[in-house]
Design a protein around this nucleic acid. Sequence first.
DNA 1: ATGACGGAAGTTTTCCGA
Length: 266
Amino acid sequence: MKIATWNVNSLTVRLPQVLDWLAAQAAAGAPVDVLALQELKLSDDKFPAAALEQAGYSAVWLGQKTYNGVALLARQPAAEVQRNLPGFADEQARLIAATYHTGGTDAQPLRVVGAYFPNGQALGSDKFAYKLRWLEALRTWLEAELARHPRLLLLGDFNITFDDADVWDPVGLHESIHCSSVERAHLQALLALGLHDAHRLFEQPPKSYTWWDYRQLGFQKNRGLRIDHILLSSALKASARACQIDRAPRKNPQPSDHAPLWVQLG
DNA sequence: ATGACGGAAGTTTTCCGA
């Protein structure tokens, strides 16, 4: 099982790259089973379900015009689809969860939670307060969700770094947005529910990032942040075989500012 | 200097992202 996440920064613009990337993974002998997408930036009626179906992926999605929007693509049909956080009134499309019955050696179904965490803009702003409220609502819901679904992944664009190893300039960005101790405490609170950072289960190259600023040659200078994550429940941790960030799509013409990352479960 | 770059809405500029 290969499960991936990618903030595409407009699925309208990036659909050809998503299809190319999925085809390239399959051609390399390791097809993607589930792909979580964030920042679709399109309304539900504009979602390219037919093109994805043609590529062998059934999708569920929660769209929004201009901003946000999330989807799950999979080679199996989705069950028990949940859109946004129950009990948390939210005008922004940020979360979608589904259950996949993978068959084969995976006897138990897999619960996949794809999320686009709020950015937060700046500490002390209204958007930061919203980010903290959203994080608390997520933690509360996830606690119950984990009890119902022991084999669970939470993946997507978290907009939070774990620590300074995830930051290209820890001094310059000290206690700034995505790097603050307040945000990091919320991320640790998710781990405390019994989740594990898939990336850190394996040896990784130094300065591994998933996002680079479009400006000032950020990618070329590897001035980035690791803010996209895949968290595995304890029941899945032992089955993890590899976890990688794929920088190749960031080198495309008209790239997303984020790179995809994936985990292989044995 | 709160910029740059890119996407979207929609119109010559603004909002937002991270």
